[in-house]
Amino acid sequence: MASVEKCGRDGRTTYQARWRDEQGKQRKKSFTKKADADRHAATVEADKARGTYIEPSKVTVAEYARTWAEARPHRPTTARRTEMMIRLHIEETRLGPRKLADVRPSEVQAWATDRSRVLAPTTLRQAVGLLRSVYGAAVLDRLVASSPVVRIRLPRHERERIVPLSVDQVAALAEAMPERYRAMVLTQAGLGLRIGELLALRVQDVDFLRRTVRIEWQFTQGSKGRRSEPKTPRSRRTIPLPRVVADALAAHLAAHPAAEDGTIFTTQQRAPLGHVYYGHNLMSRAVTGVGLPPGTRSHDLRHHYASVLLAAGESVVAIAERLGHEDASLVLSTYGHLMPDSDDRTRTAIDAAWATVGESCAPDVPRADDRSVSRQAPR
């Protein structure tokens, strides 16, 4: 049971509440008034009885964030990104050295507002999501009673609509690449691959007879040619092999044989290509050379793939499977504005629904196309 003892020091009288935590370790806290000490002791015992007791802790936000991150089963790329986020946007801010239990919602809001001045809207949301996850774990570990990451207002952000590259633009981009790497553009645009999936593609993944491509591996940034499993379980997929891609791959392999492990796209030394070399160095020069919109990157070839399938009437679910998305709703939110003839379908749907209304229910109003309607202005 918690108890209160009267203590005297330097001529001052204090009252010390003492109790044992759930691990049996003795705890204490001093108060200047006996009533406050009694109230705290009673609260501790009540919290222990309800199972809501929170053990006082001196661990800081940054310290716990690092502990949380180290315990997560993150992929190497995610682990590096999370470590950088904690170091730059938690540890090196006013929030980092604060004790977990001392942080208030107003402090988190001030932190988010400060970070909005240096982070892009999407990255800011990732940072807030990271802090929310850290505090969620702290609540489960009973280091804090509740999370202060609540009702955080962020700057309004409207995501720009994707304007996909046309077939002519993709063809021009491929032509602007060095001969050894032209097939990479056509392959990424014709299969909708992520850059890591493209770089890790092997000869044994391509079935020219059945005209399919199996995505089994990827190269993550900084992996130095070490293959890892794709981004998500759905990312492991089989994609139909279009003839334009099959012809490009066949011509490429005839001129530039694959590496010993089957890697199709390699450097002149037959080493695996890196993300930066292909996705930034080669791509940026080619984009500038053909005058494509600034900021065009290799991922735009994946957008091109999705837009072509939508224009052809392919289902959203099928496109999600081809792209390796976990949820078809992501296809709708990203590419919904590209769906063809949406205006005509909207008109047809409404007209079809109202066609069931009986003529007797409709007001006796001339149709818009009735040529017998008098053009005389009403008196």
Rank of each mutant, 00 (worst) to 15 (best):
E5N: 04
R9N: 15
R12D: 15
R12M: 15
Q16V: 06
W19Y: 12
K25C: 15
S30T: 02
K34W: 06
D36T: 07
R39T: 15
E45G: 03
V59R: 02
T60V: 09
R66G: 13
R72S: 14
E83N: 08
M84C: 11
M85G: 05
I86D: 08
L88P: 07
R94K: 13
L95H: 04
A101T: 05
S106F: 10
R115L: 14
V118C: 12
T123E: 10
Q126P: 12
L130T: 00
V134E: 06
G136P: 15
V139T: 01
D141K: 10
D141E: 09
L143K: 04
L143S: 06
R153P: 11
R159G: 00
R161V: 00
P164Q: 00
D168Y: 05
V170K: 00
P178Q: 05
A183W: 05
M184R: 03
G190V: 04
G192V: 03
L198A: 02
L198S: 04
R202E: 02
Q204W: 08
L209D: 12
E216H: 15
T220G: 11
S223A: 12
S228N: 10
E229R: 07
K231T: 02
K231Q: 02
P233V: 03
T238L: 13
P240C: 03
A246Y: 02
D247L: 10
A248W: 07
A250Q: 10
P257W: 15
T266L: 11
Q268P: 10
L282H: 03
R285Q: 08
L292M: 11
G295D: 01
G295M: 01
R297D: 01
L301H: 00
R302A: 00
H303N: 00
G313V: 06
E314A: 11
S315G: 09
R322G: 10
A328L: 13
H337S: 00
L338H: 00
T346A: 05
A349M: 14
A349C: 11
A355S: 11
V357I: 08
V357P: 08
D369Q: 05
R371I: 13
V373Q: 14
A377E: 08
A377M: 13
